[in-house]
């Protein structure tokens, strides 16, 4: 039962990550491989400020959000100069640099040793200790993320970013300052990713750089693509699938490393399969065209 609840919490966390990434990827067409960096920043901010330095949960999470939002501006600047595929490479290297920093800046992040002992958060007087508590917290954040993404993908803001997705020049020709839209989209994504990171840090009570590597970014992007970009529940369905199904393999009675490899093969295969045969994803209705 504990195990099932654990999987549910992780599904919630990945849902938050993928829903927030979807605003940039699915709605604005900006493929970013840097999302795990913001996830990591949020986690480490909470781990360092709450775990190592004893500040309250709110300090940790706020710091994470602020740092992540500021860093996301870097992505926006990159998008100014770079076309689609170069932009993806740019975000890819952004993710690698952050990962490197987390691994090597020993004095601050304790590098590969990680930061243990992140205390349970105290939210409005309630100490979140049990898994059910994290489920509630996670579900609340997810609901907020879904609402925010829905708001920003509707009305005039939504129209502009959907136009940017197809033809940025067209949006500019109607007087839209496309850069400011992109900055907003990246900042929102980064903020929610940081919150997810904070939740993760408190939940697992231990953070280390390997959880926020470029592979994580690839996983989160895959969740968006598989679930269905630019759809309300696509990213959540993707998270349930890509987090849940590999867990099933654990029970197949295979040796650990074999199961891990099979999981990866399955995951890679699903990715290629979806892109080839159902490009709009499971629940989506938008397909990335040239």
């Amino acid at each position: 039962m504990d195990y099932v609840l654990h999987i549910l919490v992780m599904m919630l966390i990945y849902s938050i990550l993928s829903v927030s990434l979807d605003l940039a990827v699915g709605h604005t067409g900006l493929v970013s491989l840097a999302h795990a960096s913001f996830y990591g920043v949020g986690a480490y901010a909470s781990a360092i400020l709450c775990g190592l330095m004893g500040f309250s949960f709110w300090v940790g999470i706020s710091a994470g959000i602020v740092v992540a939002a500021l860093m996301s501006v870097g992505l926006s600047i990159m998008s100014l100069r770079l076309s689609e595929d170069y932009f993806a490479i740019g975000t890819f290297s952004f993710g690698l640099v952050v990962s490197s920093v987390l691994t090597n800046w020993l004095s601050v992040t304790r590098g590969p040793f990680g930061i243990p002992g992140v205390p349970p958060p105290i939210i409005f007087g309630w100490t979140v200790r049990s898994q059910v508590g994290y489920l509630v917290a996670g579900a609340t954040v997810l609901a907020m993320a879904v609402i925010v993404v829905r708001h920003f993908s509707s009305h005039q803001f939504g129209r502009v970013i959907h136009c940017i997705r197809e033809d940025e020049v067209l949006a500019q020709s109607f007087g839209k300052n496309t850069l400011s839209f992109k900055v907003t989209v990246f900042a929102l994504g980064a903020c929610f990713a940081a919150v997810a990171g904070s939740l993760y840090a408190h939940y697992i009570s231990f953070v280390d750089p390997t959880s926020f590597s470029i592979n994580e970014s690839i996983l989160i992007l895959s969740i968006v693509i598989v679930g269905g970009p630019a759809s309300r529940f696509g990213p959540i369905i993707g998270a349930i699938l890509l987090v849940g199904v590999p867990e099933v393999l654990r029970f197949a009675g295979l040796p650990f490393s074999v199961a891990a490899d099979l999981r990866q093969i399955l995951y890679g295969g699903v990715l290629v399969g979806i892109v080839l045969f159902r490009p709009q994803g499971i629940a989506g209705n938008y397909e990335f065209r040239r």
């Binding site: 689609e84 890679g268 990715l271 892109v275 397909e287 040239r290």
Partner: peptide, 14 residues
């Protein structure tokens, strides 16, 4: 007619 994003993701899968 898939865009570079799809090709990128497919190549990641491969």
């Amino acid at each position: 007619g898939s865009g570079p994003a799809s090709l990128l993701v497919a190549s990641l899968g491969l």
